[in-house]
C-alpha cells in the first residue's frame, strides 16, 4: 500500500514540485514559476471567520514564529449599537487558542477580524529601510532579507498595522512572507490551507482566472486603514467601520 501511494505521488502533478528538493530547501524555485506573472494579495471574508485560531497556529507551525509575536493574528470586535468609535477588541495570545464563548448581546454585535501583513504596493516599511534589507518582490510580496537586515526596527515603527516585529533570537525584522516558499510552488499559504471555512483566500491579482475577480464584482470590500494610502492588497469583505 505504501509503495503504491509513493508511486502515485511521484506521478501526480503536485509531485512535479519534486518533494525532495522542496523539503530539503534547496535554493531553487519551482521550475515553472515566473515572478512577473503574479501579483499576490489575499481576500478575507469576515462573515465566514469563526475565530477558531487555526490560521494563527498554522502560521506558527509553518514559519517558526517566536512566542509572543505574530505574523498573523485574529481580533474579536464587540461593537455596541452605533458606537463605532469605541469597539471592545480582544486578541488573547493572538487568538491562537480561539476566543472565550460569549452570550448573545441584544444591543450589539460580535465579529472576528484576521490580520496579517497587507503586502502593500506602496509599503511604508520598505520605504524607510536604510539598507535595502526589506523589499517588495517582483510578484508583490513584502519580504525581509534576514541575512542583510541590521535590526534597526525602523520598519516596525513605519508599519501602520503592527505586522512587523524584531525576532528575539535572530535580532532582525520578521514578518508574514505570504508563505512565499509555498505560493511559488503552486501551494496556498499555511493560514489559507488551515482555514476551515474559507474565510482566507490567497489571491493572485494578475491572474484573470483567480476567483477573487468575480468576488470583487459582487461584494463590498475594503482594506484596513485606507487613509494611510499604503496600497494594501489584503481585501476584507464586509469590513465594519469600527475596525482599525
Amino acid at each position: 500500500m505504501n509503495i503504491t501511494r509513493r508511486h502515485l505521488l511521484i506521478l501526480l502533478p503536485a509531485a512535479a514540485v519534486a518533494w525532495e528538493s522542496v523539503l530539503a530547501g534547496t535554493p531553487e524555485e519551482a521550475p515553472n514559476y515566473k515572478k512577473t506573472d503574479h501579483w499576490w494579495g489575499m481576500l478575507i471574508d469576515i462573515p465566514k471567520c469563526i475565530g477558531c485560531g487555526n490560521c494563527v497556529r498554522a502560521c506558527q507551525a509553518e514559519n517558526d514564529v517566536p512566542d509572543g509575536f505574530f505574523r498573523t493574528w485574529v481580533e474579536r470586535y464587540h461593537v455596541e449599537d452605533w458606537n463605532l468609535a469605541n469597539p471592545e477588541v480582544i486578541s488573547p495570545d493572538g487568538g491562537k487558542e480561539g476566543f472565550p464563548s460569549v452570550a448573545e448581546d441584544s444591543n450589539g454585535k460580535y465579529f472576528f477580524v484576521p490580520k496579517l501583513c497587507n503586502h502593500c504596493a506602496d509599503s511604508p516599511c520598505t520605504q524607510v529601510c536604510p539598507v535595502g534589507a526589506t523589499f517588495i518582490s517582483p510578484d508583490g510580496v513584502v519580504l525581509v532579507d534576514q541575512t542583510y537586515c541590521m535590526g534597526c526596527a525602523y520598519c516596525v515603527q513605519a508599519c501602520p498595522y503592527g505586522c512587523r516585529y524584531i525576532h528575539p533570537q535572530k535580532r532582525v525584522a520578521d514578518k508574514c512572507t505570504l508563505c512565499y516558499h509555498r505560493i511559488t510552488k503552486g501551494l496556498t499559504t499555511a493560514c489559507c490551507e488551515a482555514c476551515p471555512t474559507g474565510a482566507r483566500q490567497l489571491a493572485d491579482l494578475k491572474n484573470p482566472k483567480d476567483p477573487i475577480h468575480a468576488f470583487l464584482k459582487t461584494h463590498t470590500v475594503q482594506v484596513l486603514k485606507p487613509q494611510m494610502a499604503t496600497g494594501a492588497k489584503v481585501f476584507y469583505n464586509a469590513l465594519d467601520g469600527s475596525v482599525r
Partner: peptide, 12 residues
C-alpha cells in the same frame, strides 16, 4: 534573497 526565502522548508 528571493530564492533563499522561496527555499524555506514546508510544514503543511
Amino acid at each position: 534573497a528571493i530564492a533563499e526565502i522561496a527555499a524555506k522548508p514546508l510544514h503543511f
